[in-house]
Design a protein around this nucleic acid. Structure first.
Length: 153
DNA sequence: GCCAACGTTGGC
DNA sequence: GCCAACGTTGGC
Protein backbone atom coordinates (compact mmCIF):
# COMPACT_ATOMS: atom_id res chain seq x y z
CA UNK A 1 0.00 0.00 0.00
CA UNK A 2 1.34 3.38 -1.02
CA UNK A 3 0.49 6.86 0.16
CA UNK A 4 0.21 10.01 -1.91
CA UNK A 5 -0.40 13.72 -1.89
CA UNK A 6 -2.60 15.26 -4.56
CA UNK A 7 -2.76 19.00 -5.11
CA UNK A 8 -5.81 20.90 -6.17
CA UNK A 9 -6.74 24.54 -6.13
CA UNK A 10 -9.89 24.64 -3.98
CA UNK A 11 -11.38 27.31 -6.22
CA UNK A 12 -11.22 24.69 -8.94
CA UNK A 13 -12.03 21.55 -6.95
CA UNK A 14 -11.96 21.33 -3.15
CA UNK A 15 -12.29 18.56 -0.58
CA UNK A 16 -15.88 19.75 -0.08
CA UNK A 17 -16.54 19.17 -3.77
CA UNK A 18 -15.19 15.64 -3.41
CA UNK A 19 -17.32 15.11 -0.32
CA UNK A 20 -20.39 16.17 -2.31
CA UNK A 21 -19.49 14.07 -5.37
CA UNK A 22 -18.32 11.01 -3.35
CA UNK A 23 -15.99 10.05 -6.22
CA UNK A 24 -14.24 11.99 -8.97
CA UNK A 25 -11.95 11.43 -11.92
CA UNK A 26 -8.66 13.17 -11.25
CA UNK A 27 -8.22 14.94 -14.58
CA UNK A 28 -5.96 17.74 -15.70
CA UNK A 29 -2.56 16.36 -14.70
CA UNK A 30 -0.18 17.54 -17.45
CA UNK A 31 3.18 16.70 -15.95
CA UNK A 32 4.98 13.51 -16.91
CA UNK A 33 6.41 12.75 -13.49
CA UNK A 34 3.02 13.19 -11.85
CA UNK A 35 1.38 11.11 -14.56
CA UNK A 36 3.93 8.33 -14.15
CA UNK A 37 3.21 8.08 -10.46
CA UNK A 38 -0.46 7.59 -11.30
CA UNK A 39 0.02 5.11 -14.15
CA UNK A 40 2.92 3.13 -12.71
CA UNK A 41 2.76 3.19 -8.95
CA UNK A 42 -0.72 4.03 -7.73
CA UNK A 43 -2.79 1.04 -6.72
CA UNK A 44 -6.46 0.73 -5.96
CA UNK A 45 -6.83 1.10 -2.21
CA UNK A 46 -3.94 3.55 -1.81
CA UNK A 47 -4.71 6.59 0.32
CA UNK A 48 -3.91 10.16 -0.62
CA UNK A 49 -3.83 13.49 1.13
CA UNK A 50 -6.01 16.08 -0.56
CA UNK A 51 -3.91 19.24 -0.61
CA UNK A 52 -5.31 22.71 -1.24
CA UNK A 53 -2.84 24.84 -3.18
CA UNK A 54 -3.10 28.53 -3.93
CA UNK A 55 -5.47 28.64 -0.99
CA UNK A 56 -5.98 30.59 2.19
CA UNK A 57 -4.41 28.83 3.90
CA UNK A 58 -2.68 26.27 1.72
CA UNK A 59 -2.43 22.87 3.32
CA UNK A 60 -3.76 19.34 3.65
CA UNK A 61 -7.54 19.28 3.86
CA UNK A 62 -8.41 15.59 4.08
CA UNK A 63 -7.99 12.09 2.74
CA UNK A 64 -9.12 10.32 -0.42
CA UNK A 65 -8.80 6.74 -1.62
CA UNK A 66 -7.81 5.50 -5.06
CA UNK A 67 -10.74 3.39 -6.28
CA UNK A 68 -9.89 2.97 -9.97
CA UNK A 69 -6.52 2.74 -11.69
CA UNK A 70 -5.36 5.30 -14.26
CA UNK A 71 -7.47 5.59 -17.40
CA UNK A 72 -7.09 8.04 -20.31
CA UNK A 73 -7.83 11.66 -19.45
CA UNK A 74 -10.18 12.57 -22.28
CA UNK A 75 -10.22 16.25 -21.31
CA UNK A 76 -6.86 16.45 -23.13
CA UNK A 77 -8.71 15.73 -26.41
CA UNK A 78 -11.27 18.51 -26.06
CA UNK A 79 -10.22 21.91 -27.44
CA UNK A 80 -12.78 23.55 -25.18
CA UNK A 81 -11.08 22.22 -22.06
CA UNK A 82 -8.57 24.26 -20.06
CA UNK A 83 -6.10 21.40 -20.14
CA UNK A 84 -6.48 20.63 -23.85
CA UNK A 85 -3.34 19.10 -25.37
CA UNK A 86 -3.28 19.12 -29.19
CA UNK A 87 -0.77 16.26 -29.18
CA UNK A 88 -3.14 13.86 -27.43
CA UNK A 89 -5.20 11.47 -29.56
CA UNK A 90 -7.64 8.64 -28.88
CA UNK A 91 -4.93 6.16 -29.92
CA UNK A 92 -2.28 7.93 -27.83
CA UNK A 93 -4.07 9.79 -25.05
CA UNK A 94 -0.74 10.79 -23.39
CA UNK A 95 -2.50 11.87 -20.20
CA UNK A 96 -4.19 9.71 -17.61
CA UNK A 97 -6.06 10.08 -14.36
CA UNK A 98 -7.16 7.90 -11.49
CA UNK A 99 -10.55 7.88 -9.82
CA UNK A 100 -10.78 8.99 -6.19
CA UNK A 101 -13.27 8.41 -3.46
CA UNK A 102 -13.86 10.73 -0.53
CA UNK A 103 -12.65 9.32 2.80
CA UNK A 104 -12.73 12.20 5.26
CA UNK A 105 -12.01 15.85 5.87
CA UNK A 106 -9.59 16.98 8.54
CA UNK A 107 -11.05 18.83 11.51
CA UNK A 108 -8.74 21.68 10.64
CA UNK A 109 -6.60 22.17 7.57
CA UNK A 110 -3.04 21.13 8.35
CA UNK A 111 -1.40 24.21 6.91
CA UNK A 112 1.78 24.27 4.90
CA UNK A 113 3.22 26.52 7.59
CA UNK A 114 2.50 24.02 10.35
CA UNK A 115 3.89 21.13 8.30
CA UNK A 116 7.16 23.04 8.18
CA UNK A 117 7.31 23.10 11.98
CA UNK A 118 7.74 19.34 12.49
CA UNK A 119 11.21 17.83 12.12
CA UNK A 120 9.49 14.47 11.49
CA UNK A 121 8.18 15.87 8.21
CA UNK A 122 11.25 17.67 6.96
CA UNK A 123 11.74 15.23 4.07
CA UNK A 124 8.19 15.53 2.73
CA UNK A 125 8.41 16.32 -0.97
CA UNK A 126 5.76 19.00 -0.74
CA UNK A 127 7.95 20.91 1.72
CA UNK A 128 11.01 20.96 -0.51
CA UNK A 129 11.91 24.25 -2.11
CA UNK A 130 10.50 24.63 -5.59
CA UNK A 131 8.41 21.46 -5.36
CA UNK A 132 5.70 21.83 -7.97
CA UNK A 133 4.59 18.26 -8.49
CA UNK A 134 0.83 17.85 -8.30
CA UNK A 135 1.00 14.12 -7.56
CA UNK A 136 3.71 12.92 -5.22
CA UNK A 137 4.43 10.01 -2.89
CA UNK A 138 4.26 10.32 0.89
CA UNK A 139 5.88 7.80 3.27
CA UNK A 140 3.77 5.71 5.63
CA UNK A 141 5.31 7.48 8.64
CA UNK A 142 4.58 10.90 7.17
CA UNK A 143 1.05 9.85 6.32
CA UNK A 144 0.26 8.62 9.81
CA UNK A 145 1.88 11.61 11.47
CA UNK A 146 -0.08 14.13 9.43
CA UNK A 147 -3.28 12.14 9.71
CA UNK A 148 -3.04 12.43 13.51
CA UNK A 149 -2.53 16.17 13.22
CA UNK A 150 -5.57 16.44 11.01
CA UNK A 151 -7.78 14.51 13.39
CA UNK A 152 -6.92 16.61 16.42
CA UNK A 153 -9.72 18.75 17.72
C1' DG B 1 0.23 40.76 -8.37
C1' DC B 2 5.08 39.42 -7.82
C1' DC B 3 8.47 36.35 -8.72
C1' DA B 4 11.45 32.11 -7.94
C1' DA B 5 11.61 27.59 -9.43
C1' DC B 6 10.88 24.47 -12.68
C1' DG B 7 9.25 22.00 -17.12
C1' DT B 8 8.76 22.31 -22.03
C1' DT B 9 9.65 23.94 -26.61
C1' DG B 10 12.15 24.77 -30.58
C1' DG B 11 16.05 26.87 -33.21
C1' DC B 12 20.48 25.73 -34.17
C1' DG C 1 22.10 17.61 -27.66
C1' DC C 2 22.46 22.41 -26.02
C1' DC C 3 20.24 26.14 -24.11
C1' DA C 4 17.49 30.51 -24.40
C1' DA C 5 12.89 31.71 -24.36
C1' DC C 6 8.67 30.94 -22.75
C1' DG C 7 4.78 29.20 -19.89
C1' DT C 8 3.17 27.43 -15.49
C1' DT C 9 2.99 26.62 -10.58
C1' DG C 10 2.21 28.15 -6.24
C1' DG C 11 3.77 30.60 -1.95
C1' DC C 12 3.59 34.92 -0.31
Amino acid sequence: MNYWLLKSEPECYSIDDLKRDKTTFWDGVRNYQARNFMTQEMKVGDLAFFYHSNADPSGIAGIAKIVKPATPDLTALDPNEDHYDPKATVQKPIWYGVTLEYVNSFNKIVTLKSLHSYPELKNMIVLQKGSRLSVMPVTKDEFEFVKKLGQQR
